[in-house]
């Protein structure tokens, strides 16, 4: 299972990076969302998928049967952060569009020469 998951994660990363490198702002944001999804799955896979019971103490379950709690804790915080970041990006894109009238990254080019 882990092997298949690894390949799937690779494919998701590929799609995410490709989207992030595109021109349209909204696609870039979709790309970052996808990237965080892929990263969450990567964490989960790294911890091992073999757990039989959820990481909640209950009778009759030995320590070895729990799924690995550490990646789960990491992912839980990561999900919420990813949400905050995505919404930040969305508002940024929205405001950039309002101010500049475009969401094309090629036209949003700017350096410090621009005053």
């Amino acid at each position: 299972m882990e092997i298949i998951m690894s390949v799937a994660i690779g494919l998701m990363f590929m799609a995410a990076v490709y989207l992030i490198l595109s021109k349209s702002l909204i696609r870039i944001i979709i790309g970052t969302s996808l990237l965080s999804h892929a990263a969450h799955l990567l964490f989960l896979t790294m911890g091992g998928l073999g757990g039989i019971a959820p990481p909640v103490v209950s009778d009759g379950v030995t320590v070895n049967d729990y799924a690995d709690p550490l990646p789960q804790a990491l992912i839980l915080t990561a999900i919420v952060i990813a949400f905050a970041v995505t919404s930040f990006f969305l508002v940024l894109a929205y405001r950039a569009y309002q101010e500049l009238g475009t969401d094309n990254m090629e036209q949003l080019r700017g350096t410090e020469d621009y005053e």
């Binding site: 949400f83 905050a84 919404s87 969305l90 508002v91 929205y94």
Partner: peptide
């Protein structure tokens, strides 16, 4: 935080 975000948008 989530309500702030949703409400402002």
């Amino acid at each position: 935080v989530t309500m702030t975000i949703i409400q402002t948008i």
